[in-house]
């Protein structure tokens, strides 16, 4: 609460007191002094804490960056491995486009010996469902044989065929069929190592 009368009274008191005070002595020239050993010690501690914290922050930053890079590498490797490959009608022969994709996977697999893959073969709806189980299997196996042909251990690869049972495109036209004639890749082991692998 602001009371103008009280303020006025306080001002008057201050003026009167000043009028009654004697002349003060001139101030002594201050003797120049360095920091005390205690202050130096305190500064040293503070500096070293700051340095440690900075180093820690830098470490964390680097670790985070390394983590990010690892995650990026892992994600990229995962994407490379997971990319589907496609086939011609009633064929399990690898096309050049498919071979390019498989070479990229091969690089990842070479650098990551702990990674295991399951190849899932699929067929389009044409032909009978039982024959298409065999066709899907043959597609998955040509992919498996591509990898083992480059010296990778066969034990790292398993195949399964879904035939025409799991279309990703529902239509009955060439575009849908082309998307359905495929091999999908599932990482069954070593997925956590993907970011740390060489290459």
């Amino acid at each position: 609460m602001f009371n103008p009368r009280l303020v006025l009274a306080a001002f008057a008191t201050v003026v009167l007191a000043a009028a009654c005070r004697p002349e003060p002595p001139p101030p002594a020239t201050p003797e120049p002094t360095g920091p005390t050993p205690a202050e130096i010690e305190a500064q040293r501690v503070a500096d070293s804490i700051a340095a440690a914290e900075a180093a820690k922050r830098e470490d964390e930053r680097q670790a985070q960056q390394a983590q990010r890079e690892m995650e990026q590498r892992a994600r990229a490797a995962r994407e490379t491995l997971g990319e589907m490959v496609y086939f011609d009608y009633d064929e399990s022969v690898l096309t050049s486009e498919t071979t390019d994709k498989l070479r990229a996977k091969l690089e990842v697999l070479r650098g990551c010996p702990s990674v295991r893959l399951r190849m899932e073969g699929h067929a389009d709806e044409r032909g009978t469902s039982e024959y298409n189980i065999a066709l899907g299997s043959e597609r998955a196996q040509s992919v498996s044989e591509f990898f083992t042909g480059f010296g990778l251990a066969g034990a790292r690869f398993a195949t399964v065929s879904y035939g025409e049972e799991r279309p990703i495109s529902q239509g009955s036209n060439e575009a849908a069929w082309a998307r359905n004639r495929r091999v999908e890749f599932v990482i069954t082991a070593g997925g956590n190592d993907l970011g740390r692998c060489q290459g």
């Binding site: 039982e130 189980i133 065999a134 299997s137 043959e138 998955a140 196996q141 498996s144 398993a158 195949t159 399964v160 065929s161």
Partner: peptide
């Protein structure tokens, strides 16, 4: 029955 896939087919 038929076996396809890994192993003897």
């Amino acid at each position: 029955f038929a076996i396809v896939g890994d192993g003897p087919e």
